[in-house]
């Protein structure tokens, strides 16, 4: 069985407890307007171009079979409409400026890579986090990897946006120690507007999940999206009285993703981070509900 992975990041210190390795699954069924990993959205491998690394040697032009890489008016250009993401150019590119994002991996491939850091997990109370994209969209593969981790006694966390059938949760519950659950907005319309889907299923799943599994809630804090009083109050109402919610993380919006949009040939929508003051108010409100808050804004 194979899964499509676009990155394995070692020494992650912000994706769950301790020092962790984060495995990023490709493909997502949300299209958050502020997503800082646009290359994670499509389920299939795709070409990414790092303009800064390019030395203009044009080796890719010769390698390209669909004429997507061309020199137009002395400048190297990429025609996204003709590109088939075949990866021939990435194979030749001397600086890895052209790169195919997304690789098919077996469970063994992943385990070999993540087990390298076993000392760091053991000594820090860390483990492995499966993120994305939406890791749970590749449920069969995810279930297999999780099983393997559990068999080796490694702490596992799954980072999810929650927009998936409840049955999927049930399948991986026995092998998942912690869920990192993203809550982008409490307002159904806003959620629809900024992520492309409404939040019904997400909230319903969370109601069930918080009864049976430890959870860390992650809220991306974005100006003019979820920083209104109404939003904050809704979060508080919804998250109160849940013993299994071990912490709430307020995550700042950052613009690192902007350049990546260009690299995958899309345009980015620009947002701003929630005001520091607002995030503090938000923190206080949540804390008033007895919830442990980690404010990174």
């Amino acid at each position: 069985m194979k899964g499509t992975i676009f990155n394995i990041q070692h020494f992650s210190v912000h994706d769950g407890p301790g020092i962790r390795t984060t495995v990023f699954f490709k493909g997502c069924n949300l299209k958050c307007a502020w997503c800082h990993n646009p290359e994670s959205q499509n389920a299939t491998p795709e070409l990414m171009f790092h303009a800064k690394k390019c030395i203009g040697c044009a080796a890719c032009v010769d390698a390209c079979e669909t004429k997507a890489r061309q020199i137009v008016n002395g400048r190297l250009t990429h025609l996204h409409e003709t590109c088939t993401d075949c990866g021939k150019c990435a194979e030749i590119c001397y600086t890895k400026a052209l790169e195919i994002i997304g690789q098919e991996c077996t469970v063994e491939d992943i385990m070999e890579e993540v087990m390298k850091d076993i000392h760091l997990y053991n000594n820090s109370g860390g483990g492995i986090t499966f993120s994305g994209g939406e890791a749970m969209l590749q449920i069969d593969f995810l279930e297999e990897v999780l099983k393997e981790c559990k068999a080796l006694g490694i702490h596992t966390a799954v980072d999810t946006a929650g927009n998936i059938p409840w049955e999927y949760f049930q399948r991986i519950l026995p092998y998942t120690d912690l869920f990192l659950y993203d809550l982008k907005s409490m307002d159904c319309n806003l959620h629809q507007k900024f992520t492309g889907v409404d939040n019904d299923r997400i909230l319903n799943n969370l109601i069930k999940l918080k009864k049976i599994s430890p959870i860390w809630i992650r809220i991306p804090c974005i100006k003019n999206v979820n920083d209104s009083k109404k939003e904050m109050d809704a979060y508080c109402r919804y998250l109160q009285h849940a013993e299994n919610i071990q912490r709430i993380e307020l995550i700042p919006y950052h613009s690192y993703g902007e350049s990546k949009y260009k690299m995958v040939g899309r345009s980015a929508e620009i947002f701003a981070q929630m005001d520091k003051q607002t995030s503090q108010i938000f923190q206080e409100k949540l804390e008033a509900q007895g919830l442990p808050v980690f404010n990174y804004c």
């Binding site: 301790g18 000392h119 053991n122 109370g125």
Partner: peptide, 12 residues
């Protein structure tokens, strides 16, 4: 604890 873990891993 991240750093004490790094030291202990270095030992390991």
């Amino acid at each position: 604890t991240i750093f004490s873990a790094v030291i202990r891993s270095f030992l390991d």
